[in-house]
């Protein structure tokens, strides 16, 4: 019974492998198990329920199997054997999985239903349009005309409906702590309803493989208290930036402005809106933290920092001018 000795090692191994992550806890900026909204909460509960139940099933089946291997069976008559067979097959093969999946379907489906963007009475959910690009997010607030990128400001405590589309390939919008993901498919608009219970910052990530820089297609969701949110929208809606003066301003207009929009300065539509670039948490949809000097670094090294991104190299622009532009961009914060 050499192998049976090995079987005894199993539980130890399993336990070891299980406890290590548990020590780390369930929290994390992208953790499904650290929900911050009702949609994510429902799924977290489902997970724990299923995890416990299915772990028990796994342990039971494994234990039965190993016990069956090690026991010394007594002689049974043909009739007895037939009865035992029926018990196993009907009990384990039909009833156990049958009841489990029935319970799961009846329990789980309504959870999913509550996440649907069904019509609500009273105040309507806030609508925000998000368009995915390789590899950044375009965010538009149709009510106020505000445009931003790679960040999403929402009011906390009430549902928002995100209208998701794509400009090129298939992407998927996912903010794990707020709720499930939904694909962004060219030619279609999908509606995802999310809600953040408390003001705070939540991270999101493109969840459908979308090419070279799929990794660096992140979004930051900032949930404000209702009043703060209103203030932010108003500030952003009326914001007009004063153009950069001098040669740098010229260069910005001819090189950058054709693709990037800066409210009141340029009107490009191919690349992220820069009107509030200075206040964004990250650059390049998650490549760099937006610290002082980061924009300059991005402008100089973006081909290396985010291989394959759509912005042309800036070799033809004088370094000093580039730094001037970066310095100016840093000031663009509402």
């Amino acid at each position: 019974m050499n192998g049976a000795r090995g079987c005894r090692r199993l539980p130890t191994l399993t336990a070891a492998a299980l406890t290590v992550p548990l020590l780390g806890g369930c929290s994390g900026p992208l953790s499904i198990l650290d929900p911050a909204g009702p949609m994510a909460q429902g799924v977290a509960w489902l997970w724990w329920l299923m995890a416990i139940f299915f772990s028990l099933v796994l342990l039971a089946v494994g234990a039965l199997w190993i016990h069956a291997l090690r026991r010394t069976p007594r002689e049974v008559t043909v009739v007895e054997a037939r009865r035992i067979e029926k018990c196993w097959l009907i009990g384990g093969g039909l009833i156990l999985p049958g009841v489990s999946i029935l319970a799961l379907l009846l329990l789980g489906t309504p959870v999913g239903q509550r996440m649907l963007p069904l019509p609500v009475e009273g105040e309507q959910p806030l609508r925000i349009d998000i368009t995915a690009h390789q590899w950044w997010w375009e965010v538009r607030y149709p009510d106020s005309g505000v445009v931003t990128a790679n960040q999403l400001h929402i009011p906390a405590g009430r549902p928002v409906d995100l209208h998701l589309g794509s400009a090129d390939v298939i992407h998927s919008f996912w903010v794990p702590r707020l709720g499930g993901k939904l694909d962004m498919i060219p030619g279609r608009t999908n509606v995802l309803r999310l809600q953040a219970d408390q003001p705070g910052t939540y991270r999101g990530q493109c969840a459908e493989f979308c090419g070279t820089q799929h990794t660096h297609m992140q979004i930051v969701v900032i949930a404000h208290a209702e009043a703060d949110y209103q203030a932010w929208v108003e500030e952003r809606a009326k914001r007009r930036v004063t153009p950069l003066a001098g040669a740098a301003g010229e260069i910005f207009a001819t090189h950058c402005g054709t693709c990037h929009r800066v409210a009141g300065v340029s009107d490009g539509a191919r690349a992220p809106d820069l009107s509030d670039i200075g206040s964004r948490p990250t650059l390049g949809a998650g490549v760099l933290r937006n610290e002082p000097g980061a924009i300059a670094r991005w402008l100089h090294e973006h081909r290396r920092l985010k291989q394959g991104n759509g912005m042309p190299a800036h070799d033809d622009i004088d370094d000093n001018q580039l730094d001037a532009i970066a310095e100016w961009l840093e000031t663009l914060a509402p």
Binding site: M50, G108, G179
Partner: peptide, 19 residues
Amino acid sequence: GLTGVMLALVPFDWQVHDT
């Protein structure tokens, strides 16, 4: 197989799909 049954549940799949 058991995690497969979990994934068959639509709302759970919305969270863990493609992870």
